[in-house]
Structures are given as C-alpha cells and as structure tokens.
C-alpha cells in the first residue's frame, strides 16, 4: 500500500462507503466486495482500511452498526447508513462532481494558452 494510493483513498473512501451502504446494510467483507465490483475492479482497496473508516463514520453519526445473522447463520456486524449519512453523501457527491468537472475541464482544454 503506497502512500500515494492511501491519500487517494482517504479522500474518496468515505464517499464510496456511503454510496455503497445507501444500497442496503451490509457487513465489512460484503462492503469490500461491493466496492470492488461497482468500481469495475479499479480500486484494489486494502480491505482492512474499511474498518477504521467505518468507525470514524460511526462517530460522526453517518452510519450505525448492529449484529445480525448472515445467510450462512454466522454472526456479523452490519453497517447501515443514517439520515445524516445520506445528507453527507449528497454533499460529498456534489463536491466530487465539482472536483471531477474541474479536473476534466483542465484535461480536456481545447483552447489556446489561457
């Protein structure tokens, strides 16, 4: 895990987790699988980093957790997004869109020297 990748994920990991949990409550491993699938395997996240992130988001009130049974009758901690979390997701989504648009604008600049 290089420092560069960590930094990249730090900013976006919470956004990705919130977006994924907005689908349905899931446990940590399930969350990791979903993010990898949904990103088209682009993000090879260090799965362990999900847990501190989830803990931080819990303290901020964006997610809550509870113990439930898995399909295989195992006990697992399931994480679910809260109302505050959904508002945060919208905020971060807009911010991301602005950032992406800005970066895209620079990359796809077709004009002459600014």
């Amino acid at each position: 895990m290089t420092a560069g990748r960590t930094d990249l994920l730090q900013g976006t990991l919470e956004l990705l987790v919130l977006r994924t949990l907005a689908l349905e409550p899931m446990h940590g491993w399930g969350l990791a699988q979903r993010i990898e699938t949904m990103s088209g395997q682009v993000f090879e996240i260090q799965q362990g980093t999900l847990y501190p992130a989830l803990q931080r988001m819990k303290r901020k009130g964006w997610v809550r957790s509870e113990w439930r049974q898995t399909e295989n009758n195992r006990r697992a901690r399931y994480y679910a997004i809260t109302a505050t979390g959904r508002r945060q997701l919208e905020k971060e989504r807009e911010q991301w869109a602005r950032t992406a648009a800005g970066v895209a604008g620079v990359l796809e600049w077709k004009g002459g020297p600014a």
Binding site: H27, A32, Q47, R74, R75
Partner: peptide, 10 residues
C-alpha cells in the same frame, strides 16, 4: 470476531 469473519469469507 468481525475481522476473523472477514478473513474467513475472503
């Protein structure tokens, strides 16, 4: 317990 489950599933 949570981590063990995660590793087992993986």
């Amino acid at each position: 317990e949570e981590f063990r489950l995660h590793l087992e599933m993986e």
